[in-house]
Simulated scan of single mutants.
Amino acid sequence: MKNSPIIALDFSTASDAYHFLSPFEQSLFVKVGMELYLQEGPAIVYKLKEMGHDVFLDLKLHDIPNTVGQAMKGLARLGADLVNVHAAGGAAMMIAAREGLEAGTAAGNTRPSIIAVTQLTSTSEQQMQKEQLIQTTIEGSVVHYAELAKTAALDGVVCSVLEAKRITDACGPEFLRVTPGIRLAEGDAHDQVRVATPNNARILGSSHIVVGRAITKAENPVKAYETILKMWEENA
């Protein structure tokens, strides 16, 4: 699995995604979320893998353990490199998800890595406390979910950059810290709350960063990607 910035392909159609990717000469690490997957289905993952890209299939599964386990068994056959669930589904659900992936992975192949969403980077501490009735700090909630994912033998979590170091301390450096909410210093935060630049993400302990509109909405996406890649790598 590549360590390059993960580009969020937040497009409505496959043709839009392929048009965006056409100027890039190298293989990339791309994210397929609900918007694109629900319009295009498994074909989008198959095609992106044929094109040589690593794929993060970002569906954030959250249901009863049996349902999630069976869904992951099917998703394992698509060839994605990284998949995820919501940690709020609990340890039993996360274990079922991992076991489903293992059962669905063809003999001789390595199962996709699986991570758990802790708190969305669009969620503020005040919102979490008021709407979810979680009466702790957002960092405390995120680290708790990370430790729960670790006990379920998942490979890591989705978190914000602000919690990445605490998760490294609690779960070890090999535990993935995949961080959305990445913006350039002059960029618009859009609907994200807990954001950071690529430089800060590396310094503060992210293992992978997810970048969307800072690249996909840029006047020159290839140049924007190269700028972000350089910022990410220079603090490695």
Rank of each mutant, 00 (worst) to 15 (best):
A224R: 15
K230R: 15
F56T: 08
G79I: 08
A214C: 03
A236S: 15
P42I: 05
I228S: 11
A71F: 09
E226R: 14
M72E: 10
G172T: 11
I138W: 04
A196G: 04
H53A: 03
T151D: 08
I209K: 14
R177G: 04
A152S: 08
H144N: 11
E139I: 07
E139D: 06
L162W: 12
A116S: 07
M72T: 13
G74C: 13
L176Q: 15
A88L: 10
S27D: 09
T137Y: 08
L176Y: 14
D81G: 05
T151I: 12
L75S: 11
L48I: 06
Q26P: 00
A80M: 13
G108T: 11
P173T: 15
L162F: 13
S141C: 03
P5F: 00
K165I: 03
G69P: 07
V195C: 03
V68S: 10
P198R: 12
I114V: 08
D191T: 08
I6H: 03
F56N: 12
G187R: 15
H19F: 05
E125I: 00
K150N: 04
L82M: 08
E25W: 02
T123A: 07
I115V: 08
E163Q: 10
S207F: 03
Q129F: 01
D81L: 04
K73Y: 09
M94N: 00
E163I: 07
N84K: 00
L154D: 08
